[in-house]
Computed example of a mutant assay.
Amino acid sequence: MSKAPLEGAVVAVAGAGGPAGRATLLRLAEAGATVVASDADPARLAEAVDAARYAHGGATVTGDTVDLLDLGAARDWAARTEREFGRIDGLVHLVGGWRGSKTFAETDLADWTLLEKLLIRTVQNTSLAFQEALQRSDRGRYLLISAAGASRPTAGNAAYSAAKAAAEAWTLALADAFRKAGGEDGPRAAAAVLVVKALVHDAMRAERPDAKFAGFTDVADLAAAVAGTWDKPASDVNGQRLWLTEQP
């Protein structure tokens, strides 16, 4: 019987404390991965890690509070993870944030200042910190969760959409690095963008029982899509935008 793609893999999850992070930790642990989670909020992180451990008693799920705005801290996290577990097979980037306005004219550039840090700088730092370890893996994946608004920005979401578009471009540049490193044999690792309209989870449905959430992606479905990227060859995943909602 062949080994499942994530059995024995070591996967880091950045921004693991939110609903999407919780669902992803659960799905990866269920698939047999060792999961190394980080978040800027230690309380939320501890709750997410405990939930994954409780749901999957045999799983190794650890948590580390890491300042991903600090490249040195991100590099230390990657080095510590590889040293402790012997390998790194994935980085799932879930660090998020949103700011917007009613109209384009009302855009507050302070929103850009914040979103540039949350949505771009954290991607830069995690990709630079984890690239080499992912290339050493036989199944490395760098996965960015992005939004459809990056491809079709709306007037009130200029800062958010521009930041997401920049993060996508950065991730696809990493994909090109993986392609070049693989040479004629094709990439050993893959970087890809999973695109959603927005995310929904049970607490949101409970708060708004009459809402339709049309086109939204449930966090459990996102987690399944994340895990599913290990079911395909790196060459089929690398450099791709994987749409989980209708493509504009």
Rank of each mutant, 00 (worst) to 15 (best):
A29N: 09
E30K: 15
E30T: 13
A31R: 11
G32N: 11
G32R: 04
T34N: 06
T34C: 02
T34F: 13
V35Y: 02
V36R: 12
S38Q: 07
P42N: 05
P42A: 08
A43G: 12
R44Q: 11
R44D: 07
A48Q: 05
A48H: 08
V49L: 15
A51N: 09
R53G: 08
R53S: 13
R53P: 02
Y54Q: 13
H56N: 14
H56W: 02
G57S: 04
G57F: 03
G57Y: 07
A59F: 07
T60I: 15
T60A: 10
T60N: 07
T60F: 00
T60H: 01
T62R: 00
G63H: 00
G63S: 06
G63K: 00
D64C: 12
D64N: 06
D64S: 00
D67A: 11
D70V: 13
L71V: 07
L71Q: 10
G72Q: 14
A73M: 01
A73I: 13
A74L: 12
R75E: 04
D76N: 06
D76W: 05
D76R: 15
W77P: 05
A78I: 14
A78M: 15
A78N: 06
A79G: 09
R80F: 08
R80Q: 13
T81H: 06
E82M: 14
E82D: 06
E84T: 00
G86A: 13
G86E: 09
I88G: 01
I88N: 06
I88E: 02
D89N: 11
D89T: 07
D89K: 09
G90N: 04
L91T: 09
V92W: 03
V92K: 03
H93S: 06
H93E: 04
L94R: 12
V95F: 04
V95Q: 01
G97V: 12
W98H: 04
W98I: 15
W98R: 07
W98S: 12
W98G: 00
S101N: 07
T103S: 14
T103Y: 09
F104K: 09
F104L: 14
F104N: 08
A105K: 08
E106R: 10
L109D: 09
D111W: 12
W112P: 01
W112T: 06
T113G: 04
T113F: 02
L114S: 11
L114R: 03
L115F: 12
E116C: 11
E116Q: 11
K117I: 03
L118N: 10
L119Q: 00
L119T: 07
R121Y: 02
V123M: 05
N125P: 10
S127T: 05
A129Y: 00
A129K: 05
A129L: 14
A129W: 02
A129V: 06
A133G: 08
A133H: 03
A133E: 01
